[in-house]
Design a binder for these strands. Structure first.
Lengths: 234, 234
DNA sequence: GGGAGTATGGAACACGGTTCCAAAATGTGT
DNA sequence: ACACATTTTGGAACCGTGTTCCATACTCCC
């Protein structure tokens, strides 16, 4: 390991010098292509024309590498989120959806964006959420709990929705999987599963992104109500 | 693999016969003790006085085994959830908290309870949620979206809150980790992170379970409002 | 009691994370 | 310029894991 982490491109060193940034960048490419299990240090080393040992000089281990890669792609969400001059609620919504869409493009990352935040972009996300929450009329002592709750929702529910695709998606398409699952639901005993047996068509037709926004809107509605309890929206 | 899966204890076979149930039971014990990475087929086989090969006759692979184990412990939540005769909202809340507490006792399981539901207890959970949602005044066409949203919240946010402990908890205690994270937040530039830098004490003092219920209550408040828009609760 | 099918368990295979270390490249003091 | 210390490289080797293979043992049924 380097004594000084991230000595960075200060002009010194060789031209083809390795760095955490370069390694993470290459890792993201492989992760997008092959998923977490497909990423190996040997393969990554080959892409970078080096050996596995060299990588360990810059990166502690695979867990850290994947965490860094996940935080890296999370950063894309901020570029995507619009900076409209609307209410805090609308901005929270837009930010949340930007994160979801970003993770949707990098499914392996969804389950690695964790809390409490320690990496750069996760910190940035939580801070942005907290700042927006503070702009609602919510009393200050609830800022932390509500902000983290929203943060948990965004990353947790995104992971729930997105991760299964990387697992089953390898062999079967999403549609085929849903159809098969719907069939299984239909075969259940209506006495034991009254709800599921009459909900199979919804399962087949549902849109993942709508699922995310449905819960998000419930959450934000609840927030609005707590922030300004006297005025329920139309 | 057996031709007929789950021929079950019908009295036939040898006394020390293996079965998926027995294997999953032993796996849960090891998972509780050693976590997902600590569970190996060799160790599990030793516990059961057999070899790794025998296990593969009953279980497809490790992924399936862990999924079955997670679904198994999820079942405990139903025994824990009270069957009060209150409103649907209160019952949803109690059920959600029971799931959280259950997963909290088996941290490895949290990230493996996934949706859409295919395993027994995950199906049961979603059905229960759907049935309760249907008891609110919500229009039928929204039942599926709202039920799955709540389901996603429960499992997704639980995973977010609980999983990190299995990762960092191995070496450091939760308190030490939070203190260290809070210190890092304090060192951030207030210009870049206005929210985090003034929220460090909340981070140190927060209770994980409260975090879960905070978001849950927001969600359920939003649900109540949608279900009966005219009567905002006190 | 013998034969078909079921189930077992231990050895072997393939492969991945990680460590090790000798060599190369770079920087430093003289 | 030149030795020396330090940083960085990269490939081989170590270790352990999931998984497969297969000879053996056990049941059941005729």
């Amino acid at each position: 390991m380097p004594r000084t982490r991230g000595r960075a491109p200060d002009g010194k060193g060789r031209a083809d010098a390795l760095s955490p940034e370069i390694i993470v960048g290459a890792a993201v490419v492989l992760l997008d292509e092959l998923g977490e299990r497909g990423l190996t240090f040997r393969l990554l080393a080959k892409q970078l024309n080096t050996g596995p040992g060299a990588l360990y000089w810059h990166v502690t281990n695979k867990d850290e590498l994947v965490a860094l890669a996940a935080d890296h792609v999370l950063g894309h969400a901020f570029a995507a989120a619009p900076r409209l001059e609307e209410g805090a609620g609308a901005q929270l919504r837009a930010l949340a959806i930007a994160v979801f869409d970003t993770l949707d493009r990098h499914p392996w990352a969804a389950s690695h964006v964790t809390a409490p935040a320690t990496l750069a972009n996760a910190l940035r996300l939580l801070d942005r959420i907290g700042t927006l929450v503070a702009q609602t009329g919510l009393p200050a002592e609830r800022h932390f709990a509500v902000s983290t709750a929203i943060s948990y929702y965004i990353t947790g529910v995104s992971a729930q929705i997105i991760t299964p695709r990387t697992v089953v998606g390898a062999t079967t398409s999403r549609d085929a999987f849903l159809t098969r699952t719907a069939e299984r639901w239909e075969e259940l005993d209506p006495a034991d599963y009254p709800f599921l047996t009459r909900t199979t068509t919804d399962l087949r037709d549902h849109d993942d992104r709508d699922q995310f926004t449905t819960g998000l809107d419930l959450l934000l509605d609840g927030l609005n109500m707590t922030a300004e309890p006297r005025r329920p929206p139309a």
